[in-house]
Computed example of a mutant assay.
Amino acid sequence: MQASLRAVFAAIFGIALATNWRNVRPIFVNNRKKGSLAFGVTFGIMIGSAMIYVLLNPPVIVLYLLGGLCGALVYRHVANKKEQEG
Rank of each mutant, 00 (worst) to 15 (best):
I52K: 01
I61R: 04
A72H: 13
L5M: 10
F39H: 04
T19A: 11
F9I: 13
I45G: 02
P59M: 12
E83R: 12
A10G: 06
R32F: 14
G40W: 02
V8H: 05
L17W: 08
S36T: 13
L37M: 10
Y53W: 13
R6Y: 07
I52V: 15
V78H: 07
A16W: 12
N57M: 14
G35W: 04
T19L: 09
F39I: 02
V78R: 13
K81F: 08
A7G: 13
K33W: 13
G67K: 01
M51K: 10
L55M: 14
G67E: 02
I47R: 01
L63P: 00
H77S: 08
I27M: 02
F28W: 02
Q84H: 09
F13K: 08
S49H: 02
A7D: 13
V62T: 13
I47A: 15
G14P: 06
G71N: 10
I45P: 00
L37K: 03
R6F: 15
P59T: 05
N31L: 02
M51W: 05
A79T: 04
Y75M: 12
T42E: 02
H77R: 10
G44P: 00
I12R: 13
V29S: 12
R32Q: 03
L69H: 00
V41L: 09
G86Y: 05
A7E: 13
C70H: 00
A3W: 07
R25A: 07
A72M: 10
G68Q: 03
V60S: 04
T42M: 03
V78S: 13
V41H: 01
H77V: 15
M46S: 09
N20P: 00
F28T: 00
N20F: 14
P58L: 09
A38S: 11
A10Q: 04
P26D: 03
N80D: 07
V41Y: 01
L17K: 08
A72Y: 14
M46G: 11
G86Q: 04
A38F: 01
I15A: 12
S36M: 12
F39Q: 05
V29A: 11
A79Y: 05
F13Q: 14
G68A: 02
A18V: 08
L5S: 14
A79H: 15
L69S: 02
L56A: 12
A38N: 05
W21Y: 15
